[in-house]
Amino acid sequence: MTAPDMLDPLKTAETWKSDGREVAIATVVETWGSAPRQAGSHLVIDGEGNFEGSVSGGCVEGAVITEALDVIASGNAKMLEFGVADETAWRVGLSCGGRIQVFVERLG
């Protein structure tokens, strides 16, 4: 595998799914203020909690992975929101002060 492949979460998702692993795709759909990753950025997660890519600068990935495991189990997509105004700010908020919306879906 070459460097760009390793850094391409959507290719990783395809490989994982082909290998028979369950996969969820998280995508930044909206950002407000200062956000580290622009809309369209992907984080992909497998059923074991392995992940590739990013939706922030490492601030909220942990929470997204937890939610993704739920999405993999239930098959129902979820919209997540993170930001300073969020109640989760202390735990997994964006230290940069921005706000982001992340759509998490199961790869069918």
Binding site: A13, E14, T27, F103, L107
Partner: peptide, 24 residues
Amino acid sequence: MRFEDLKKLNEARATRKAVVTVTD
């Protein structure tokens, strides 16, 4: 997203084609 759609997307990207995905 369906697996078929992801494969289509990755294939198009690999051949330097512009792609738009529309998600409800």
